[in-house]
Every structure is written in structure tokens, then in C-alpha cells.
Nucleic acid binder design. Structure first.
Lengths: 207, 207
DNA sequence: GGTTAATATTTCGCACTACGAAATATTAAC
DNA sequence: GTTAATATTTCGTAGTGCGAAATATTAACC
């Protein structure tokens, strides 16, 4: 395929891959610039975002390592830095004393909240597209993300939306909520899909 | 906008931005994994790719810095590492003795060539989409890249200069631009020659 | 034509990233 | 109750990433 060789780049899929590569560079740039403003590093920003948006059962050193695609020792060092800045706390787990749970401090939560608009520049670029294209783009990108997830390049750890028991938009007109949880066998309102859920299970964890 | 806050993520543009963020993480992961295989770092891989695909007039320390979105001192260090590995050579420019031109060594060229399939995993994910969606995806992503380019988050250094339709300096005194695109039959300013162009075609492909 | 300003790059110091290998501690397995 | 698996840390090493300051060269300008 060799999308990065201009001579072989004629296929739509190749040009798309290269465009995604360029977006990656822009996001890296955004990350670093923003990190600097907040007196953080790019890795620290990604870690804070992960801890702010993933289910809390993934809030361990190992969970963070998978979530931001870094090796254990590196992740441990990132946590060191965040702990020094008093944005994160290590607390040994009660149930399994090998694992270390990570908790955002109050300052950490505030910092995370200020980072939520990190992708605004990207979103602005997207919003300049006609809404019909946005719909296709959304579907296509989510399919690509799912593909990369299955291939093991991304680990998704958010509430409901990445849970095997979640059925998105199962009954759109139900007043109790459009989504459905097959574990509780109950409808779910959009609002209720962001809470921490003890029964969360990734599809890959199914036995 | 706050796309990274799940509660505000309902808009298509927000979900698209988050999907792109996830693709970014996958690409970073790919970069590091591949870099390790080749006894390089992620930054070194990006530098080699840049030197292998951009127009040669951008092959200076400063050009590389813009191309991979790093500061001058950092870029200088990356070049140090590549020089140590004998993949790149520094050679002072004849015309302007402040600038340092960068040249891939033979080994550097070979290494760069082996990196061209870096995005294969991404391309595979793309190819699993129907071709109608691919067409929209391509157009939309290139529009986003152009937007990010205009906003200064990406610097593009290819296109035109390697395109069969490009006539460099065809009319040096034309106020609309010194260059010419024979596909559009229109003058081109220097600034306009760096965009991703759907009509790009290498001379060797002419039949 | 000589001072001044702009450009291109490097050096330095600092904090941090990133990894594998090996060490430590704890839990699970047999 | 030994062995194996899991979660994390420590250590050593190479490299990233930046601002501030230093150096060298070219351009600007009165």
C-alpha cells in the first residue's frame, strides 16, 4: 500500500490515510501547545483527559497505560509527574494490594475540566463542512476507530458507550430514554450513560 | 464546544473530533512501535518521512522544524540523532551560509522507503468502508487538513512541486503568482502550492 | 558604507518521555 | 505449598521538547 510514498498515493484510501496522518500532526501540535500553557506535558494532558472521561474501574496505572498507549514504566513516570504537581493521587487498592488506584485531586479535576475544549480547533474545521458530509464522516470515522480498536491499537474505556451491555438507540421514542442496558434490562436516558457503572464490561472481556 | 466532555459531545462535530483524537492515539502508537522495530524514535521516523516526501527546498533544519511541528532546538537534536545513525547529512548551503541543508544518505533513503507502509493498518481500516463513503471521507478530511493548514497547525511541503501540472516560475512578474498550474490553467502564488490537491499527478504517471 | 535589524542554527540547562530488563510484592493456580 | 501469573516500581539509557542566550550570516536602511 505504501500510502506515504506519493507515487503510490493515488487511491482514495491512501490519500485518506495521509490526511489522517496530517491531522495527527496537528493534534500533537495542539496537545503540546496547550500542555505548555497549562504547565503540563502532552502525555500529562492525555492522562488527565483519560482519567476524566473513562470509567473509574480503569483508573489504575495499568489501565492508564493501556488508555494512553504507553508502557508501564513510562506511565508510572507520568503519574509521578502528575503527583508532584498534585493533580493525581496514588492510593493502593483495598481488594488487590498489587494494584494502585489513581484519583484526580480537586485541582486535577479542575485542570481536566479546562482541557475539555482541547479539540475546539478541530471541531471548528469540522463544522465548516456541510451537515450531510458530517454525517458520513462521523459514521466512517467511528467505523475506523472500531476497526483499530479490534486490531488492538486503541483501548476504549468509557461508560456504557463501550460496554458490551449497551444498546445504543434501542428504542428512540421511549420517554424513559432511547438507549438500553441489557444487564439491567432497562432503558437508559442519555444523561445516565456517563455515570460509573460497576457492571461495565468490555466486549473483549466476554467469556 | 468541549468535545472531550461526554456531556457536551452530542453534536456530530464533537463526536467526529473525538474520533479523530482516537485515530491520533492509534497513529502515535503505530509510530512508536514501528520506530522501535527500526531502532529509531517516533520523531526520527517523522523526520525521515518528511525528508522523503517533501519538496527538497524544504530540506533545511528550519523546514524540517515546521514540517514536523517542533521547535528549532528540538529539531536540531533530532537531526543530531539521525546524523549519528548516518541516515542524514548536514551540509551548509552555498547560497546562504546561515542555512544548513539536510540530505538523506543512501542508508537514510533505504530506511525511509521501508517506512512508507507505516499507515497500512489505517489504510486497511479505510478500505473496509464502501467506496462512496471513502469519497466523502477523502473530500472532508482534505478540507479539514486545508483548514488546519490555514490556521497554521500544519505545514504542507509537497504537492504542485512534484506535480506534472505544475510549471514553476512560469511568469515571474505576474502579481497573481509566479507559478502556473496547467490543470486549472491558472497562476499560482507560492503560498497556494502547498495544499493537498485532488488533481495532483506525478509526471511519471502520464501516459 | 556602516550601523541596525532580521534570519538560521546551535549550545545549554532542565524537565520529562519512552523503553526493556530486572526487582518487588501480591494474588491465583495446581 | 510450591509455582505461575499479575501489577507496579526501580534503574539505566537514549531521546524529546522547550526557552533563553550565543553565534554567524544576510538584509535593510538612512
Amino acid at each position: 500500500m505504501k500510502a506515504l510514498n506519493p507515487r503510490y498515493r493515488q487511491s482514495p484510501s491512501g490519500q485518506i490515510a495521509v490526511a489522517l496522518y496530517r491531522v495527527t500532526q496537528a493534534v500533537q501540535h495542539l496537545l503540546r501547545r496547550r500542555a505548555e500553557q497549562e504547565d503540563l506535558s502532552a502525555a500529562q494532558v492525555q492522562a488527565l483527559i483519560f482519567l476524566n472521561t473513562s470509567r473509574s474501574s480503569a483508573h489504575t496505572v495499568g489501565g492508564l497505560a493501556k488508555g494512553i498507549a504507553l508502557a508501564y514504566p513510562t506511565t508510572s513516570a507520568v503519574v509521578d509527574a502528575l503527583e508532584r504537581k498534585e493533580l493525581v493521587e496514588r492510593r493502593p487498592s483495598e481488594s488487590d494490594r498489587r494494584t494502585i488506584n489513581l484519583r484526580l485531586t480537586q485541582r486535577g479535576k479542575e485542570k481536566s475540566a479546562t482541557l475539555e475544549d482541547l479539540l475546539d480547533e478541530i471541531e471548528q474545521a469540522v463544522q465548516s463542512l456541510p451537515s450531510t458530509e458530517q454525517q458520513v464522516l462521523q459514521r466512517a470515522l467511528q467505523a475506523i476507530v472500531a476497526h483499530l480498536n479490534r486490531a488492538g491499537y486503541i483501548h476504549l474505556h468509557e461508560m456504557c458507550w463501550h460496554c458490551q451491555f449497551f444498546r445504543r438507540n434501542a428504542h428512540p421514542n421511549d420517554p424513559r430514554g432511547p438507549h438500553h442496558c441489557t444487564f439491567m434490562d432497562a432503558p437508559l436516558a442519555e444523561e445516565d450513560t456517563f455515570f460509573d457503572c460497576p457492571d461495565f464490561q468490555l466486549p473483549s472481556e466476554r467469556r
